[in-house]
Structures are given as C-alpha cells and as structure tokens.
C-alpha cells in the first residue's frame, strides 16, 4: 500500500516536470511568435515544433509507462470551496486561478468532456455502428485510395517545384554587371568611348585630360586664379568683378569652346 503511494508520488513528480518543460517551450514559442515574427525564419519555427512534439511524446511515454499507476482510478474530491481569494492557489497557478469556488471547480476538476461534446461523440458512435462491416470496409478502401492519390500528386508537385527551384539557381543577376552599371551612372565609367581613354571622371582631381574644345575651363582656371573661392563664376562674371590682366583671353576661350561643345553639334 505504502509502495503504491510512493509510486504514485514519483510518477506524479515525473508528470509535473514533463508538463513544466512543455509549458516552458510553449511559452517561449509564443513569445517568439509575438515578438520576433518579423525576423522569424521557417527553420526556427520548425525547430520549435519539433521540440514541442518531442516533449508531447515523452509525456505520453510517461503516462503509458507500466510503472505509472492508472491515474483515472484516482479520485479527486474538492474538500473546501470558498469564494475568497486564495493567495497560495494564486501563486501555484501563476495568477490564473484566484479563487477556488463553486464557479471554477467544475471546470478544473472535470474528467469527462463537455455534455455537448459527449452528445456528439455518442451520435458518431451510433452512426458508425449502423454501417455494416462491408460498407465500412469499402469506405476505408476508397479513403485510402484518395489519400494515396493525393500523396502522389503532392510529391510529384514537390519534385517539379524542386527542379523548377533549380532554375532560379541559374543566375538572375551578375555582380560584375551591377558594378559596371553603378560606376556608369555614378561617374560615367565606360560611357564616353568617344573621349580619349585615360580621361578622368569626377573625383580624380587634376588628372583630367580634356578633349580639345570641350571646355575652356582650364584656361579660365589659370587666368582666374584669384577667384579661388568662387569657382562657379564664369569668365564673364570674373571680368565684371574687375580683375584685369590675362582675363580677356580666358573669356575668349570660354565662349569659343562653349559654342564648339560636341553635344551641340
């Protein structure tokens, strides 16, 4: 008798720890779903599922173990019902059940399904009993056939999408092209094949060999050395600013070159 009680206690403990594990992983999975849904990856969801399924399996094993006494033979009787708040109960249920009253006890100590569910189950059992063995066999066979057909279709689809999945593995983009295109829009790399090779783009200061007649800027630069702080001033404007000297030649070149610009031809 005492041994039996000990066994019951041990298996209850085992059960409790299994359920606690399950609860923890459920909790963390729910947390993940609620807080990390935006960066959650499918493999990690599958991992969580695998964990849960494994723990459920262990729980089942514990329940079915031969040393586990049949819990259904145990009777639980509520000794005291009280409408008052029970802090102990509150703590043990992690704040889920504040009172142990006549309202909640039927829910928590229920061992049978809801009356409606019980009714439905009964209905199903009588339905099943009414069909003859032959008819049942036939239904089973047709269901099996449908299932295998479906399975075949799904696996075929899978194979096809896998072979289709190989196609995207074929390159859809080329990083070298990306670089070439970005360089082209950024500073015209590879665009001006009519310019002498070796001419500079922006950002390569001082290396500019400029197509003859493309611009008179270099002359302006030299002539307009005092205008260091105002590089945007055109030659004409600099002349207006009253800087004598070599200026006029700069202006001349500028005007001439502007009218000769290749684009305007």
């Amino acid at each position: 008798w005492q041994r039996e009680e000990k066994q019951l206690e041990a298996s209850l403990d085992a059960l409790l720890s299994q359920v606690a594990d399950l609860k923890n992983s459920l909790g963390s999975f729910i947390y993940k779903l609620e807080n990390e849904y935006d960066r959650l990856t499918w493999p990690s969801v599958l991992d969580s599922f695998a964990l849960l399924s494994g723990q459920l399996n262990t729980l089942n094993k514990v329940l079915k173990h031969e040393k586990t006494p049949l819990f259904r033979n145990q009777v639980i009787i509520p000794l005291v019902l009280s409408p008052d708040r029970d802090e102990d109960l509150m703590r043990q249920t992690e704040g889920r059940v504040p009172v142990f009253s006549h309202e909640v006890v039927p829910d928590h100590l229920r061992t049978k399904p809801d009356p409606e569910v019980e009714e439905q189950e009964k209905q199903l059992t009588t339905d099943a009993a009414r069909i003859g063995a032959d008819a049942a066999q036939k239904q089973i066979q047709s269901l099996n056939k449908m299932c295998s057909n479906l399975l075949e279709k799904i696996s075929k689809e899978e194979r096809e999408s896998e072979s289709g999945g190989l196609r995207p593995n074929k390159q859809t983009f080329n990083p070298a092209d990306t670089n070439a295109l970005v360089a082209a829009v950024a500073f015209g790399k590879g665009l001006s094949n009519w310019r002498p090779s070796g001419s500079s783009g922006p950002g390569q200061p001082g290396a500019g060999t400029i197509l003859a007649g493309a611009s008179g800027l270099q002359q302006v630069q030299m002539a307009g050395a005092p205008s260091q702080q105002q590089p945007m001033l055109s030659g004409v404007q600099m002349a207006q600013a009253g800087q004598p000297g070599k200026m006029p030649s700069g202006i001349k070149t500028n005007i001439k070159s502007a009218s000769m610009h290749p684009y305007q031809r």
Binding site: A184, G188, L191, S192, R195, I210, V220, S234, S257, A258
Partner: peptide, 11 residues
C-alpha cells in the same frame, strides 16, 4: 554652358 560647365558624359 554659359555658366562654364562642360559636359563630361551622357547616356
């Protein structure tokens, strides 16, 4: 052009 810009490239 009048402002003194020159064309570097086009596409």
């Amino acid at each position: 052009m009048e402002m003194g810009f020159r064309m570097d490239h086009e596409f």
